[in-house]
């Protein structure tokens, strides 16, 4: 399963980067520096999407008391943190030449940084609790508390005056990007998505093995309660 998603992710990455570097034209105001968009935006999208999916599994684990959903949430956190870090890093390397600053404390950047802290806090809380089931519950509550941050990140550029520009692509209006630039970005977003699925599948397998062991896994985990 994971191998299949890795393969798709690799193909999409090659295709997306080809469009991004060889098909997409230079931008009229940012020159070649805008090419960071092909990883910055997909990483930022994934950082928010993974958080939502992680909280969903954490909530299911909390309500239904299912181990597997809690383990899914557990498996997603490191990849989510990685995507958040990549979004922040590439953002800094994009902001320096275009805005003139590596970092500013505007609402978009600050809320994305809070997202990174939420991921790190989630993983740290889990690691600090020895009993895995108690860790599941405590970390699920933290994840659910942090969900409010996701719409804040997304809408920050509309709600407040920010240095960060508004969304080029959204559900409510047509994209404000040339077609080949948009295609490259969307293909890369799909590639990041497939990569995230592949990596979390691999990680959840490891977590199941570590927590349940082979024999007990078969006998105990079939029931929901």
């Amino acid at each position: 399963m994971a191998t299949f998603f890795f393969l798709v992710a690799a193909i999409l990455t090659v295709w997306g980067l080809y469009i991004g570097f060889f098909v997409a034209p230079t931008d009229f105001q940012q020159g070649e520096s805008y090419r960071i968009i092909f990883i910055h935006v997909p990483a930022a999208w994934m950082s928010m999407l993974i958080y939502l999916v992680m909280s969903f599994w954490a909530a299911i684990g909390l309500i239904m008391n299912t181990r597997l959903s809690s383990m899914m949430a557990h498996a997603l956190a490191p990849t989510g943190a990685l995507m958040t870090f990549v979004a922040l890093w590439t953002g800094a390397f994009w902001g320096r030449p275009t805005w003139g600053a590596w970092w500013v404390w505007d609402a978009r950047l600050t809320s994305e940084l809070i997202l990174l802290f939420l991921y790190i806090g989630y993983m740290a809380l889990r690691a600090s609790i020895e009993d895995p089931r108690r860790g599941d519950r405590a970390s699920a509550i933290l994840a659910l508390v942090g969900v409010v941050n996701v719409p804040i990140i997304y809408f920050s550029v509309q709600w407040w005056n920010t240095l960060h520009q508004g969304a080029s692509v959204s559900l409510t209006k047509s994209p404000t990007m040339a077609t080949s630039m948009l295609t490259g970005m969307l293909v890369m977003a799909l590639a990041f998505w497939m990569y995230s699925i592949a990596v979390s599948l691999m990680r959840v397998r490891r977590i199941i093995r570590d927590r349940e062991g082979n024999a007990t896994w078969l006998s105990e985990s079939s029931g929901v309660q």
Binding site: P25, F28, Q29, G100, V104, L163, M177, M181
Partner: peptide
Amino acid sequence: QVLAKHDENYMPPEAAE
């Protein structure tokens, strides 16, 4: 400190012209 705030439009120079 002076920072440039650019918009969310991306297009080739020919299209902008």
